[in-house]
Nucleic acid binder design. Structure first.
Length: 375
RNA sequence: GGUGGGGUUCCCGAGUGGCCAAAGGGAACAGACUGUAAAUCUGUCGGCGAACGCCUUCGGAGGUUCAAAUCCUCCCCCCACCA
């Protein structure tokens, strides 16, 4: 098997790439969507379900797992793979997003970030080194550097200073973990807000550090789709071509296709799982809000074009009943389907790139999920 | 048969003279959700109207009052206990 971090591009279609990334727990076919499993579980979905729908890699979160059950405890159980019984690749986020999402209960300094636990209010300190150590304990295949995810409202001066600090933190993370050490690879994270020149600066600085891959952070933090696409399309093509590119926290089906079209290889987003729990399902015909009265006696499948267990087995009327009744099975079946849809979208993208018709695929989905559509 | 309690907008339930088309919850109907403090949150929820507003509604019928879901009279129904 190829060395963890090895990335091979098999074919391209415009800027879009079809590749394979090697990790200690197997290969990842890109472009790929990665289900989010913050607390060591993709909410409502068991590992065998994930395998069945073709998930290749899932996420875990440094901050959450450090607070509970504790990374030491996980290490004593043989690492996150063994603990959670997911034996394929795992990417752990660094807690950088929590710098943004928990901004009301943290303070940032050059040394790192002091957080108050959302569980009990206790104080905790995350330095770049600490975050690496936690991820080493968790044993993830892909570690992310500690970064500051700057919100959409941040001004240019702050964003510029923050980006420099994120670079220094990135270097410290790299220094704390040799390339390929224990089979764990590490990605740097580009920040720079919504200024193209700052994004370029962040990229230039991070490119000097020998990371196995690079991520675009700080998007989908409150900006418009137009603003997000502008930055995405500007920076993604400038990123090192021979390394995997990861767009963090994005996004909708169209966002993902936009990203792939810009040359991004990896995506993660809570949207399919969270929306599933909240009754919004993604289908080949657009979004379906399963709680709507119109599905009360709809005996058809959720998505006739989908081959997942949910769509093969149950009617819209039943899925609506489960959701409206607050039944646990609703969360599982809905999550399973939405994830299957996102994974299938990525699979179709891989296929289309090889066949040189990625633009057609993208146009197809724009037609379904675009502004003029009902979804 | 007696005594006490009670009948409120789809449901439960607050309201005991004006600030009441009537708290709160539920249901219903719709919307949001982008590196998960989210099985969460938001809006609408008597009718007409863009709106000032007008109309209908608090078991029924009458009455008192400038004004009644709220006070009085009679009637109907429910619950508890007593006979």
């Amino acid at each position: 098997m190829a060395e963890p971090g090895n990335f091979t591009i098999h074919s391209t279609d415009g800027l879009a790439r079809r590749g394979t990334l090697s990790t200690a727990h197997g290969e990842i076919q890109t472009p790929i969507f990665m289900p989010v499993g913050t607390q060591g579980t993709v909410k409502a979905v068991a590992p065998d379900d994930l395998e069945n729908i073709g998930a290749q890699i899932i996420l875990g979160n440094t901050y959450h797992l450090y607070l509970r059950p504790g990374d030491d405890l996980v290490a004593r159980r043989g690492g996150l793979h063994k603990f959670s019984q997911w034996n394929k690749p795992i990417l752990t986020d660094s807690g950088g997003f929590q710098v943004f999402s928990l901004s009301s209960i943290r303070t940032i300094s050059e040394k790192g970030v002091e957080f108050r636990s959302y569980l009990d209010g206790s104080k905790h300190f995350f330095s770049p080194e600490k975050v690496v150590s936690i991820q080493q304990n968790l044993g993830s295949d892909i570690m992310m550097v500690l970064d500051e995810c700057v919100g959409f409202g941040a001004d240019r001066d702050y964003t510029a200073q923050s980006l420099e600090r994120t670079t220094r933190w990135a270097q410290r993370c790299r220094d704390a973990h040799e390339p390929g050490q224990n089979g764990q690879i590490m990605f740097g994270i580009i920040q720079g807000g919504f200024h193209e020149d700052l994004r370029e600066k962040s990229l230039a600085q991070l490119s000097e550090i020998p990371f196995e891959g690079f991520a675009i952070g700080g998007l989908s933090v409150g900006e418009s789709t137009e603003e997000m696409y502008k930055i995405l399309n500007h920076i993604a093509p400038l990123m090192p071509k021979e390394k995997p590119r990861y767009l963090m926290g994005v996004g909708t089906p169209l966002d993902i296709l936009e990203g792939i079209g810009a040359g991004v290889d990896m995506f993660d987003c809570v949207l399919p799982t969270r929306n599933a729990r909240n009754g919004t399902l993604f289908t080949s015909q657009g979004k379906v809000n399963i709680k709507r009265a119109e599905f009360k006696e709809d005996d058809g499948p959720l998505d006739p074009a989908c081959n997942c267990y949910t769509c093969r087995t149950f009617s819209r009327a039943y899925l609506r009943h489960l959701y409206v009744s607050g039944e646990i099975l609703s969360y599982r079946l809905n999550s399973l389907h939405n994830l299957a849809f996102f994974l299938e979208l990525a699979r179709q993208a891989r296929e289309a790139i090889v066949q040189g018709r990625f633009d057609k695929l993208k146009a197809h989905y724009q037609n379904i999920y675009g502004p003029g559509s009902r979804a």
